[in-house]
């Protein structure tokens, strides 16, 4: 296990590196784009892990991602609301689905929750796929607003077209989310979630309201995931059901979190920032067809050799 002094030194160095590497590479749009998306996936992983902190492993976060994506895209397409407003308000659809989730999946644990959550993605996907008049069905929506131009202290940053500015936006987002998760984990609520994760029987026996605390974690997780989905479609400028409700979207935050370590607040971010660029920059050019297979290999190796993730670095028993 890393000593906490070294650990915070590493974290500060890594954060500084993330802020300053673009100065060494002033013209590297591919790197900006890949690392920007890695930050977005880092945020998504943190959101997923917020629910996992309570011991619940979801295989269905694509539902929240997709609903946030469509919520924002439809407000943009039908009402032309400003993008920052749609990104904040659109994910309320994810929150609504989260409320249904907490009601119907209240008593499910472990594998049963996993299977139910996997199936849950199909509900919003099928609805959106078939509600042609509202969503244009499987054709999806194109020409969505890109992220807006931000004016700050007399300087302008085009978050939609300037990939470097976009990278910084997503970097700030992931760091802010990580700080938020750290605060949650250190709060009494965070300890309640940890209690539920380590031993739900004991948690209930000391008076923790299991359903309520877990539901709060899920709703926070759902909304944050929805925001990631909303940002994602405005970065791409398009949305379609098969893109945002895919198994890929559910699996990635799980892979990044398990690889990075679920019990450290920075674990999921570490996973996303290491694995996503590795897959995109190294494996995609090498294996254009099967590059995502690296995730499968990585997750098997992680579970075999450091089951608590690389941020904990304990070897398997």
């Amino acid at each position: 296990m890393v000593k906490s002094g070294y650990s915070s030194l590493w974290l500060i160095s890594a954060t500084l590196a993330l802020f300053f590497w673009p100065m060494l590479f002033p013209e590297a749009p591919l790197y900006y784009q890949v690392l920007g998306l890695a930050c977005l996936y880092g945020t998504l992983s943190l959101a997923w892990n917020l629910y996992a902190l309570s011991g619940a492993i979801s295989l269905g976060h694509a539902a929240f991602f997709g609903l946030g994506a469509y919520g924002s895209a439809l407000l943009d397409h039908h009402f032309q609301w400003p993008t920052f407003a749609t990104v904040v308000i659109g994910p309320l659809a994810s929150l609504g689905f989260g409320i249904l989730w907490t009601v119907f999946f209240r008593r499910l644990r472990g594998v049963y929750l996993g299977l139910a959550s996997l199936a849950a993605v199909e509900i919003p996907k099928v609805v959106i796929d078939n509600w042609d008049t509202l969503t244009y069905g499987s054709m999806g929506l194109t020409g969505l607003s890109k992220l807006p131009i931000l004016s700050l202290a007399g300087r302008q940053a085009d978050l939609g077209l300037d990939l470097k500015a976009q990278y910084y936006l997503l970097l700030v987002l992931v760091l802010a989310t990580a700080v938020l998760v750290k605060l949650v984990m250190e709060s009494r609520w965070g300890w309640a979630l940890r209690g539920l994760r380590e031993n739900e029987t004991a948690a209930v026996a000391v008076g923790i309201r299991a359903d309520r605390e877990r539901a709060k974690a899920l709703l926070g997780s759902a909304y944050l995931t929805g925001i990631c989905g909303a940002l994602y479609v405005h970065i791409l400028g398009l949305v379609e059901p098969s893109l945002v409700f895919s198994l890929h979207v559910s699996a990635l935050p799980l892979i990044f979190s398990i690889f990075g370590g679920r019990t450290r607040f920075y674990g999921p971010v570490l996973g996303a920032l290491l694995l996503y660029p590795l897959e995109q920059l190294l494996f995609q050019p090498l294996f254009p067809r099967g590059h995502a297979g690296v995730y499968g290999v990585v997750i098997i190796l992680t579970i075999l050799f450091f089951p608590q993730g690389i941020s904990v670095w304990k070897t398997a028993k």
């Binding site: 009494r188 300890w191 309640a192 940890r194 209690g195 380590e198 031993n199 004991a202 948690a203 000391v206 008076g207 923790i208 019990t263």
Partner: peptide, 17 residues
């Protein structure tokens, strides 16, 4: 018990919740 928590942290869970 909460296996990954320390003895002290276990007792504190009782005090808090």
């Amino acid at each position: 018990v909460f296996p990954e928590m320390s003895v002290l942290e276990n007792v504190r869970m009782g005090v808090w919740f």
